[in-house]
Simulated scan of single mutants.
Amino acid sequence: MPLHAMEHDPEYINLQSEMIKLQKWITTNRKRVLVIFEGRDAAGKGGAIMRFIRFINPRHYRIVALGKPTEVEEGQWYFQRYIEKLPNPGEIVFFDRSWYNRAVVEPVMGFCSQAQYHTFIEQVVMLEKMLVEDGITIIKYWFSIDEQEQKRRLEERKVNPLIQWKLSTVDMQAQLKWHDYTHYKTKMFEKTSSNFAPWVIIKGNKKKLARKEAMRYLLNLLPYDEKGLTRENLIPDQDIIKVYE
């Protein structure tokens, strides 16, 4: 659903009104919130972020979408360039892909060695535990789509001039390597979901529902002031969204 259409959707407007109150609570109380968006290529991560931020104050949020590491960054500790982008007090940061590139995309595409992959798996939970203990709230979303829906969306990218920029070399391999992605995704859930930073899996075939439920989960999770005054339901639909156990 286009943004202008969603702006005429009362449910979406209510959720956005709640997002504004959430952001005010974050800034007033100097909270630090990190929201990670992961999923297969064309799963709807970027579009979901755009729904989250539509009406909130741009002075108090950032979107981080890091590209290929530079030569210098390749020689650094893997997490270093992400650490620099973590939320400051009073800020919410949205990672459009994150350090979890090394859990799925990089091993599937051969962009890292198996030794680098295993080091990441050993370190990431410890890192997230330290961040949470230091006061950062981490929400990790995985947008899940089926093989045919991904194929449809990738084909659309080829012909739609407005979204052709999204098509990458990695995207072109997504269908060919579907089962490899599944293998590493499953291992990622098993090894890196924790009680302090669990994976939140969202059925993403229906974009409109997926995006609303992702917003609902975040709003339901955090204890911001004047919560629920819109009388909008803030309990996520368990048929769309589930926390990995």
Rank of each mutant, 00 (worst) to 15 (best):
N57G: 06
V64N: 08
V64L: 08
A65K: 08
A65L: 06
A65C: 08
P69M: 08
E71T: 11
V72A: 12
Q76P: 06
W77Y: 13
Y78S: 07
Y78I: 11
Q80H: 11
I83E: 06
I83P: 13
E84H: 10
L86R: 02
P87I: 04
P89R: 12
I92L: 14
I92V: 15
I92R: 00
I92H: 01
F95L: 13
R97W: 04
W99K: 02
Y100H: 11
N101V: 08
R102I: 09
V105Q: 01
V105C: 05
E106N: 11
E106V: 06
P107Y: 03
M109T: 03
G110E: 10
G110I: 06
G110C: 07
F111Y: 15
Q114F: 09
Q116I: 04
Y117E: 03
Y117I: 13
H118Q: 15
H118D: 15
T119M: 07
F120T: 04
F120W: 05
E122M: 05
Q123Y: 08
V124R: 03
V125C: 11
V125K: 02
M126D: 12
K129W: 02
V132W: 03
V132A: 14
G135S: 08
I136G: 07
I138D: 04
I138T: 12
I139M: 12
I139D: 08
Y141V: 00
W142R: 11
F143D: 01
I145Q: 02
D146W: 10
Q148K: 12
Q148H: 05
Q150H: 13
Q150Y: 09
R152C: 09
R152G: 04
L154W: 14
